[in-house]
Write a protein that binds this DNA or RNA. Structure first.
Lengths: 125, 125
DNA sequence: TTCCATCCTGGAGCGCGCTCCAGGTCAAGC
DNA sequence: GCTTGACCTGGAGCGCGCTCCAGGATGGAA
């Protein structure tokens, strides 16, 4: 189990160095290893967490909720159900978000189609 | 062509009173009518704009870009092509956003499915 | 041994999109 | 005429999620 430097971790996770430090500061990421000199060493496991955070963030979960999830995970196996429910509720919100996005995308396409008809009219005229 | 009070407009558009005032202040909404006493009177046309802004905002367009669009529209018909291109580029970004959202939603569902298998194990045990 | 890129900490600052507030005006109903 | 609630303005403040900075330590290569 080799470790990853902060720079490598930033590259692999897509989060900036500052964001990695920030996530640790607020307790989202915890137990990050250090060298004797005090530099962070990220593990494969940390990368797994970061992957999850990216997923949750990309789907619009607020950081406070990610913290809650991480905290539950740290408490142990007996919180599995609560974590599942948290993700389930989030998934439902994501579904609504996707439906809204699609509706509004369709409106947008309509608007663009209108412009296409206008500019073709200009070409034809 | 009757007008709408600020409160009515807020209700119909889904934007708060403060947001309506803010949109006018930054020049997103312009030429909003007034009563002799200085109170805003919104028209059907204003509501149309607000509907568009909701669409663009829900699909993640930054306000600065909406301002640009509104400004172009005010300049007249000769900016139609530029407006179309602006919307077209936005639509492409929305498509990417939808694709990302779907990918991450699928990951999320996987995670939940994992939890379902775990908690069913608990039930069975 | 020296260099210099990488990293450290604590804390301030930022960009966005509102949201709230104070202090005052307006107008419809009694 | 008076009350009351909706509305006005200018400007400050906020919540989120980072992002940047100063000033200093680290550590691998030449």
């Amino acid at each position: 189990m080799i470790g990853y430097s902060p720079a490598e971790t930033a590259r692999l996770s897509g989060f900036s160095l500052d964001t990695l430090r920030y996530y640790e500061k607020i307790g989202l990421l915890s137990g990050v290893g250090r060298t004797s000199g005090g530099r962070r060493v990220f593990t494969e496991d940390d990368l797994g967490w970061l992957g999850l955070f990216r997923c949750l963030r990309d789907t619009g979960m607020p950081i406070a909720q990610m913290c809650r999830y991480a905290e539950l995970a740290r408490e142990g196996e007996h919180t599995a159900r609560e974590r599942q429910e948290l993700l389930q509720r989030h998934a439902e919100r994501v579904e609504e978000q996707m439906a809204l996005l699609r509706r509004q995308y369709d409106r947008l396409r309509d608007k663009i189609r209108y412009y296409e008809s206008v500019t073709e009219g200009v070409r034809a005229g």
